[in-house]
């Protein structure tokens, strides 16, 4: 089983992101499970969300404690939450930031970065103050890990009720912006 943990803030779209990733993997024939862990609705509060991907039905109903990969939607969380807790050896930590990966060298993990905030703003997703970065970062994740195809991510995004095309383009732009890939 591959387990991905999201760290974000209420309003950034972590809940939708964990589901879109699950749907993308499901389209590729995988079994999936995704869920958010949050309290009552609190915009800006730290939230976590989880996606599990496997070849057989997923029965464990608990949260993810030993993730294969971590996705961080707000770089400030890197310094306030233990985002790498339990991370498996070699797992990707994908951070939404304008900084290069080297800026997070002290984490001693495989960091990849993407400026999902700018990509979201460029595609009119959310406001400049509160951009919705979830779809852009999934495009980057497809590139950074190769776990799902960008085509599956785009197809899953197009099922979203709001701004499906702009979101799909943001994911593609983030995918294209990543260097090297997996």
């Amino acid at each position: 089983m591959i387990e991905i943990r999201f760290h974000g803030r209420g309003g950034q779209g972590a809940q939708v992101a964990c589901l879109v990733l699950a749907k993308a993997a499901f389209m590729e024939g995988k079994e999936v499970q995704s869920f958010p862990y949050f309290g009552v609705e609190r915009r800006g509060a730290p939230v976590t969300a989880f996606t599990k991907i496997d070849d057989r039905p997923i029965r464990i109903k608990s949260q993810i404690y030993e993730p294969d990969h971590v996705i961080i939607l707000d770089q400030k969380l890197v310094r306030s939450v233990d985002v790498t807790s339990g991370l498996k050896e070699g797992g990707v930590v994908l951070i939404n930031t304008e900084k290069p990966a080297e800026a997070f060298a002290d984490l001693n993990v495989n960091v990849k970065t993407v400026n999902a905030t700018q990509i979201a703003i460029d595609h009119g997703l959310g406001s400049k103050e509160a951009p919705i970065v979830n779809t852009a970062i999934l495009g980057a994740f497809a590139s950074a890990t190769g776990l799902v195809k960008i085509e599956s991510v785009v197809t899953a995004i197009k099922e979203l009720p709001r701004k499906p095309d702009a979101n799909a383009k943001a994911a593609q732009a983030a995918y294209d912006a990543m260097e090297g890939g997996a």
Binding site: F26, V32, I58
Partner: peptide, 12 residues
């Protein structure tokens, strides 16, 4: 159905 473990959990 258990709160969040089913209500907000997506599965096939």
């Amino acid at each position: 159905e258990d709160a969040f473990y089913l209500s907000h959990t997506s599965e096939p």
